[in-house]
């Protein structure tokens, strides 16, 4: 047995043993993907609350997670060097078309996936003490691999729906995509996500991946109604405020047809506006943070992003303090889509 195969087998055996004990379990669907999350930990925090509640009849991907540094819970010694995961997180010497090994330096988690067996294992030092932003978007990397197996691409972007169609908002840092999505959701739009969503570039649909929202102080000043739902208000000087959305707070939408790509940017002149943009602008707004945030993406990533940018109308949405006007322009853009 090769070293990568042996490591995969050892991690899998450990996951099986831990999953046979007390666990938190949650089955959910994202588009055509059915996923079962099993967490073998004393306290899973609010991790499961971040995941969709969409029912699935047949979960065919297993995501197993556990934590702890004590014997039996600590993963097998990593058979690679300290920097083997650099630069993006993937341990290339232990990854091929059948398996992937990765290290997420931000959560100090080890991720090992058996792609052929449709299974991924994640070890964390301690799940309950993960920062709120990490609990709000758990299993991002293995989820992106599971979704790719079903022809879906996880993307870094926000999405909202109106009148049966949806817009995917993508853009540079500080462009205002989260603020725009949350302002729209508070104004009655369907909320698909504000950070990561899944897209089907063939069917042109967008799917919810997390039922959470992340709020900056500047967003909260513009949208104070969000303040009552933030779970970590005492931490907002250091990190984003996080909301685990409940039914009735916003209109949570699991899936919607995509009508357009929106590139928000703050208007220099303070006047809100909507102008057509190019597919190239959309690619460069969507690709870097999607690829960077997903450890390089998957083989299908270039295809999905090219197709989205080429098949959907792209608009630059100039943001201004008049958020009602911004939301009206977003409604116009969705209405004019394909």
């Amino acid at each position: 047995m090769t070293a990568p195969a042996a490591f995969l087998a050892a991690i899998g055996a450990q996951a099986d043993a831990l999953a046979a004990g007390p666990c938190f379990r949650h089955d959910f669907g994202i588009g055509s993907a059915g996923i079962r999350v099993t967490i073998a930990a004393r306290d899973a925090g609010q991790v499961i609350e971040a995941l969709p509640e969409t029912a699935t009849d047949a979960p065919d991907w297993q995501l197993t997670a556990w934590d702890g540094n004590e014997p039996g819970r600590l993963p097998p010694p990593r058979p690679w060097g300290d920097t083997a995961h650099e630069p993006l997180g993937i341990v290339t010497a232990f990854s091929d078309e059948t398996q992937r090994c990765a290290y997420d330096l931000h959560t100090q988690s080890l991720i090992v996936a058996d792609l052929a067996g449709r299974r991924a294992c994640t070890w964390y030092p301690q799940i309950a003490t993960l920062p709120a932003w990490a609990k709000a978007s758990p299993f991002r990397i293995p989820l992106s691999w599971a979704l790719a197996d079903r022809g879906l691409q996880m993307v870094h972007g926000a999405a909202v729906s109106w009148g049966g169609g949806a817009a995917l908002l993508c853009g540079d840092g500080g462009s205002g995509k989260s603020t725009t999505a949350l302002a729209a959701a508070l104004a009655g739009f369907g909320y698909v996500g504000d950070d990561y969503c899944a897209v089907d570039s063939a069917a042109l649909r967008v799917h919810m991946v997390y039922r959470t929202a992340k709020v900056l102080p500047s967003t909260l000043r513009l949208l104070p109604a969000l303040g009552r739902w933030i779970v970590n208000p005492d931490r907002m000087a250091e990190e984003k405020g996080v909301i685990f959305l409940k039914p009735g707070q916003l209109d949570l939408v699991a899936s919607a047809p995509l009508r357009c790509l929106i590139l928000p940017s703050v208007a220099d002149d303070g006047v809100a506006g909507l102008v057509r943009a190019t597919p190239a602008e959309a690619i460069h707004a969507l690709l870097p943070s999607t690829v960077g945030g997903l450890m390089g993406g998957t083989a299908g990533t270039p295809s999905h992003i090219l197709r989205l940018a080429r098949r959907l109308p792209v608009y630059r949405l100039r943001l201004a303090p008049d958020l009602a006007r911004v939301v009206a322009l977003l409604r116009d853009a969705i209405g004019e889509g394909p």
């Binding site: 997180g89 330096l105 931000h106 840092g173 500080g174 943070s289 960077g292």
Partner: peptide, 21 residues
């Protein structure tokens, strides 16, 4: 420009836009 962004500490080194910016 991705690698520099990915290395950022999501809590202490990000700007108003949040990680990975």
């Amino acid at each position: 420009d991705m690698w520099d962004l990915i290395q950022l500490d999501p809590i202490h080194e990000v700007g108003e836009a949040g990680w990975p910016f």
